[in-house]
Amino acid sequence: MSCQEVCEFLDAYVDKELDVFTSSQFDRHLTECAACRAKYDQYQQMHDSVRVHMEYFPASEEFVQKLRAQLHQSGRRPAENIRRSWFPQWRVWAMAASVVAVLLLTAVLLRMVRRPSSSDVLAEEVVSSHIRSLLANHLSDVVSSDQHTVKPWFSGKLDFAPLVKDLSSKGFPLAGGRLDYLDDRPVAALVYKRRQHTINLFLWPSSASNSRPRTLTIRGYNVVHWTHSHMAYWAVSDVNAGDLGEFAHDLED
């Protein structure tokens, strides 16, 4: 584990949210790197101290009694109706309709505003999904190196059939797959290995035309994105950009 990854995982380590393997790698780095150990000690101390001194505001006894009384009253006649009975019903519906209209308009506007940088946001989302998958129990829902096991696992879970390629002869053995959620839709995530590294390949249908693989680096991870036959592909890993480019190339073949 690198010093940069220690920074990245610092909070998850403090919160004991790392899986056993990553956590032990973190431990090992701390024993070997004095700088990170000092940083961690300071962070943990700060964290504990803040947590101990943060106030907790329980509900007052009178307030809980008030809620209880309301509940028992509504048991006989719903409190909501008592409050609403003076309010003409048609008005309620009219208000509801206008609220829906405003919400729809807002949704449309938000989409328009967000569109320009949506691809950058998506790239960040993809990296977040990759990091998340490295956390406990999140890498694979189906664990198999066999494409004929992984591919059928997705059927019925997605509205498309992901292409699952066996790349073990190229040095990228398949490790499994899982469902993920990106770009506001469920997507297929295929897990490949390169030596001890993990590659997440996310794919889902796209209306965009074919595009050649494009490499980015985000938060220390390499990301390759391309579109092929109306499918968007995103590969993310901590392997070097050359290996990941090779991976994309082998998949496209």
């Binding site: 998850a12 949210e17 803040v50 943060m54 990296v127 977040s128 999904s129």
Partner: peptide
């Protein structure tokens, strides 16, 4: 996280953001 001691997964459900966002947002908040 600090007072209710919920897991990242539970927080993700309540706040309705992906787990990875919980991680990075919590880190920034701290």
């Amino acid at each position: 996280r600090e007072l209710e001691e919920l897991s990242y997964k539970e927080i993700a459900q309540i706040v309705e953001v992906p787990l990875g966002t919980v991680m990075s947002r919590l880190s920034r908040a701290r």
